[in-house]
Design a protein around this nucleic acid. Structure first.
Lengths: 182, 182
DNA sequence: TCGGCATGCGTACGATCGTACACTCGACGT
DNA sequence: ACGTCGAGTGTACGATCGTACGCATGCCGA
């Protein structure tokens, strides 16, 4: 049965369902059928809207990367001086590490893909680049780079840790990395 | 056909083949059959040596975690003072990030599993704990914790970066994080 | 009014999967 | 010499997979 006209919602719903499913069960166990069921679309829609599994995954992670970039933007665009920037970075780390399990898992899945396939690496480059650009408004390029890496490490460790470190430690680390050595 | 006696090599070969396969194609596309073919063992051996896919993966990643712990030990056990420790950490970051693609990918796969399943998180805890213990020989616990996170971030960013930062930047970051703020 | 066509769907096919299980065969005790 | 036993294997089964493709449906130009 055809509705006669394009339903622009379809494509979006499929992508959203894909990300949800990956977050819950892992890339290893996604399938056209499971996604279709979750998005409440017929199986045939899968191959109609996406040329294959690969395209679907690329589109899904592209959308996810956009989402993360938005989170970075939201936190890092506002601060007016170095000190506010430090606070903002600390906030970011804590939001990322104790925010939705979903984003955490999806980030890891994306990194895993990025470690193997250049197509996905480009997605991570975009957001690393954007992040650095924000940081460079308040710190010199080298410092921005180091701080960016620190954000990554702090977020991951905090997320995986059984006894996550508190905000004071996060801020101390940020302060140290943004203070040139003697 | 039975050889009549246990072949202790079998199990190891299967695990090694599993890790190789995961590194090359990702967890999403491992299968008993592919592993068996690569390890040159009959399909039946899979279910004989391992109760199922889950056990196989757990054993494989346990072995991998041991391997990574060994790398950390090799680098972090030797240094005698803070300055040597800083150099050693810089070495470690560069070895990890430009060493085998295999280890890099497997690390990401493990983190991805860890983000979702506690069983795997324990594996990462073990090595994070071991790493911190080493670092605490030269730095106070809080600093060790921050440094540990920095190692993670620097390694990942360096690995994914198109234009990886040089050793000087790594060392500068390490120096800053290990220098208490004012 | 009505034929053609784009949109979207149902279904079927061949491949591949994990796993169970009956079986072989060599080693060893007697 | 030979029966027994357990380590190890080949194969078959049911489930699930991705994808192709013929067809239903309703809109639009003539």
């Amino acid at each position: 049965m055809a509705t006669g006209h394009t339903d622009p919602q379809r494509r979006e719903r499929i992508i959203a369902a894909t990300l949800d499913l990956i977050a819950e069960e892992g890339i290893a166990s996604v399938s056209h059928r499971k996604i279709a069921a979750r998005a409440a679309v017929p199986l045939g829609s899968m191959t109609y809207h996406f040329s294959g599994m690969d395209e679907l995954l690329r589109d899904a992670f592209t959308r996810f990367a956009d989402h993360i970039v938005a989170v970075f933007d939201a936190h890092l665009a506002a601060p007016a001086d170095r000190d506010q920037a430090r606070q903002a970075v600390a906030d970011l780390v804590h939001v990322l590490s104790e925010g939705s399990q979903r984003d955490l898992v999806l980030t890891q899945e994306l990194y895993t893909l990025a470690a193997r396939r250049p197509v996905y690496r480009e997605l991570t480059h975009e957001w690393m680049g954007r992040s650095r650009t924000h940081l460079e408004k308040h710190f010199d390029p080298d410092t921005a780079r180091q701080l960016d890496a620190l954000i990554e490490g702090l977020t991951l460790h905090r997320a995986l840790d059984n006894e996550p470190h508190d905000r004071a430690l996060t801020l101390e680390a940020i302060t140290r990395i943004t203070t040139p050595g003697r």
